[in-house]
């Protein structure tokens, strides 16, 4: 099921949580809403589910305007951050709940509900735990039950709010891979919210980066990482360093020295230069480079991170060096970013 969010605005008591957000979600896609807390990602997910109503705008499921429909009519599977399993019901009763509350002919027989529950437990690899209560399950198992319960109603769209947020790192990685497999097997259109970029980049077909109630960028993991389109995305996704520079006739200057980078299309004036710490070229002589004094150096796994103080303003930037590179010990290091981007100075 294709989902389209069209010019949606959401205010909570006059406080805007989402400003005019539009997003097309393709059928069968696994998409991540990624952002820091307060970016509006959970609000957007709850709007799609129908747990909140938009202040303005509309949400379409296929050709149908879903924004006028109640959450029951939308038929979405929602997995809550803290699972929200019914603690007084067994695992099987939890999974069967969505079928049991149906009315009239739509409600399967008790036997059929039990069969469906067992099937779904097989799918989430928890066979045999039908009679357990949620309190008797581990966090990862509860998460699986919550997903099975959401899938029991054969939802058009599957929505997950921070699905792995409450789990430890090991279980998290395991469940991530497993969710991808389930998604590929069932083909549900799936939207999940996360603040963990690794999770979003690894798992999702496309990532929606959000900040302060706006969508900053939508794209594949590669697009988001390699061509961030805003300073926010540059600094939020992966590591980044930035320096205030000047552009003069397509030439980039740091204070009174040319950096050796050309930006023929950038307007002259103040700008911010962004680059990745690991994506730099070290130079010996310096005619057109960024040069700084080593202020701090630390070992990070297979590389060495060096913090440089640049120029009279003592701007600090981080770059990454090979562990055995002599520049790591030198007090003065010159480099030039290999891949970089200019943003207007704010």
């Amino acid at each position: 099921m294709e989902v389209r969010v069209v010019n949606v605005r959401k205010e909570f008591e006059r406080f805007p949580a989402l400003h005019d957000v539009s997003l097309d979600i393709r059928s069968g896609e696994l998409i991540a809403l990624l952002g820091p807390s307060g970016s509006g990602k959970t609000t957007l997910l709850r709007l799609i589910a129908g747990l909140e109503r938009p202040t303005k705008g509309a949400i379409f499921f296929g050709e149908e305007d879903a924004s006028q429909k109640s959450i029951q009519e939308r038929n979405v599977g929602f997995v809550f951050q803290h699972y929200a399993l019914f603690r007084h019901m067994t695992v099987a009763d939890n999974i069967g709940f969505g079928l049991k509350v149906r009315h009239g002919a739509a409600r399967p027989s008790a036997q059929e509900i039990r069969r469906r529950a067992s099937e779904l437990l097989d799918l989430v690899q928890l066979s045999g735990l039908e009679k357990r209560y949620p309190a008797q399950l581990s966090g990862g198992q509860r998460q699986r039950v919550a997903l099975a319960r959401a899938m029991a109603i054969e939802p058009k769209v599957l929505l997950l709010d921070e699905p792995f947020g409450a789990l430890d790192a090991q279980v998290r990685r395991e469940l991530r891979r497993w969710l991808r497999e389930i998604h590929d097997a069932t083909g549900h259109t799936t939207v999940f919210v996360t603040h963990d970029q690794e999770e979003a980049l690894e798992l999702a077909d496309r990532v929606v980066v959000m900040s302060q109630g706006r969508i900053e960028q939508v794209g594949s993991a590669d697009e988001i990482y390699d061509t961030p389109n805003s300073p926010f995305v540059y600094s939020f996704i992966g590591e980044s360093s930035s320096l205030p520079v000047k552009v003069d006739n397509g030439e980039i200057w740091l204070a009174d020295r040319p950096v050796g980078l050309q930006a023929p299309h950038a307007p002259s004036g103040e700008a911010l230069l962004y680059f990745r710490p690991h994506d730099v070229e070290l130079l010996d002589g310096c005619s057109g480079c960024i040069a700084g004094t080593v202020a701090a150096s630390r070992r990070v796994a297979g590389t060495r991170r060096v913090e440089l103080e640049i120029g009279g303003e003592r701007q600090r930037v981080e770059i990454e060096l090979p562990v055995d590179h002599p520049a790591a010990q030198k007090s003065r290091v010159a480099f030039r970013p290999r891949r970089w981007k200019l943003f207007p100075a704010s």
């Binding site: 959450i71 599977g77 803290h82 929200a84 709940f97 969505g98 509350v101 319960r149 029991a152």
Partner: peptide
């Protein structure tokens, strides 16, 4: 409200 929201999302009135 979590449990109630879960129930509603599963189709309960």
């Amino acid at each position: 409200n979590g449990d109630e929201e879960a129930a509603l999302s599963l189709g309960a009135n």
